[in-house]
Deep mutational scan, measured.
Amino acid sequence: MKTQEELTEIVRDHFSDMGEIATLYVQVYESSLESLVGGVIFEDGRHYTFVYENEDLVYE
């Protein structure tokens, strides 16, 4: 089982391919040991929310 830090790094690596990240945040109250819920804001102003669970990243 991966730690929350490892899950965060996986998500950061994925989004870094889309541009320069200004902020990546995790909603700790919605996340667990198996899933990571949060959002990412890019330097150009784009903002996505995401759920990473079971090695699957869903964002909008």
Rank of each mutant, 00 (worst) to 15 (best):
Q4D: 04
T8R: 09
I21S: 01
F15C: 03
S35L: 14
T23Y: 14
I41N: 03
A22C: 13
T3S: 13
V58E: 07
Y25W: 08
D13P: 04
E5L: 12
E53L: 15
M1W: 12
L57P: 02
E20Q: 14
E20M: 12
V58Y: 13
D44N: 06
Q27Y: 13
G19W: 03
R46W: 04
V40R: 00
Y59F: 10
D56Q: 13
E43G: 10
M1E: 08
Y59C: 06
D56G: 14
G39S: 09
F15I: 03
D56E: 13
Y25I: 05
I10G: 04
L33K: 15
Y52P: 00
E6A: 08
T3C: 06
G45D: 03
V40K: 00
T23L: 12
T8F: 10
T3N: 08
S16H: 09
V51W: 13
E55H: 12
E55P: 06
T49H: 08
I10N: 05
D56W: 15
Y52W: 09
Q27R: 12
G45H: 04
S35V: 13
E5D: 10
T49Y: 07
F42W: 03
H14I: 15
R46V: 05
V26S: 04
A22H: 10
R12K: 10
D17Q: 15
V28M: 13
D13T: 14
E9S: 12
H47L: 05
M18Q: 06
G39D: 06
T3H: 05
R46D: 04
E60Q: 14
M18F: 08
M1P: 11
E34W: 09
S35N: 07
Q4G: 05
S35Y: 15
V58Q: 11
V26N: 02
V51K: 14
V58M: 10
I10H: 07
T23G: 06
I21H: 02
Y25V: 04
E5P: 06
V11P: 01
D44F: 02
V26T: 06
L24D: 00
N54T: 05
M1T: 12
V37I: 12
R46I: 05
E53Q: 13
E43D: 10
T3K: 06
T3M: 05
Y48Q: 01
Y25S: 04
V51I: 13
F50L: 01
G38M: 02
G38P: 00
N54R: 11
S35A: 07
E30R: 08
Y59V: 10
G39H: 11
F15A: 03
N54G: 10
E20Y: 10
D13S: 15
F50I: 01
F50V: 01
E34Y: 10
V26Y: 05
V51C: 10
Y59W: 11
Y52F: 10
E55C: 08
V37L: 08
G39K: 06
A22G: 06
Y59D: 03
K2W: 05
V40I: 08
G19M: 03
A22N: 08
S31T: 08
T8Y: 11
I21E: 01
S35R: 15
I21G: 02
E43N: 12
E43H: 14
E53R: 15
E55Q: 12
S16C: 07
E20R: 14
L36P: 02
S35K: 15
R46A: 06
F15K: 01
F50A: 00
E9P: 02
D17E: 15
T8M: 12
S31Q: 11
F15P: 00
I21M: 04
L33T: 12
F50P: 00
I10W: 10
V37G: 06
E34M: 14
A22R: 15
T3I: 05
T8V: 10
E20T: 14
L7G: 02
V11G: 01
V51M: 10
V28G: 08
N54W: 07
Q4P: 06
T49E: 04
D44E: 02
R12N: 05
L57C: 04
T23I: 11
M18K: 07
S32L: 11
V51E: 04
V26C: 05
F50K: 00
S16K: 14
L7M: 08
G45Y: 03
H47F: 07
S16R: 13
E5N: 09
M1N: 12
E53H: 13
L57W: 05
D13K: 15
Y29L: 06
V40N: 00
E55T: 10
E6K: 06
S32Q: 11
V28T: 15
E6R: 04
V28E: 09
V37D: 03
E34G: 14
Y59I: 09
V26G: 03
K2C: 06
V51F: 09
T49W: 07
T8P: 02
E43S: 15
E53P: 01
V11K: 01
D17V: 14
Y29A: 06
H14V: 12
N54H: 12
L24T: 03
I21W: 03
E6H: 08
T8L: 12
G19A: 04
E34Q: 14
Q4E: 09
S31N: 09
G39Y: 13
N54Q: 09
T3F: 04
E30H: 13
D44Y: 02
F15T: 01
E60N: 13
F42K: 00
Q4K: 13
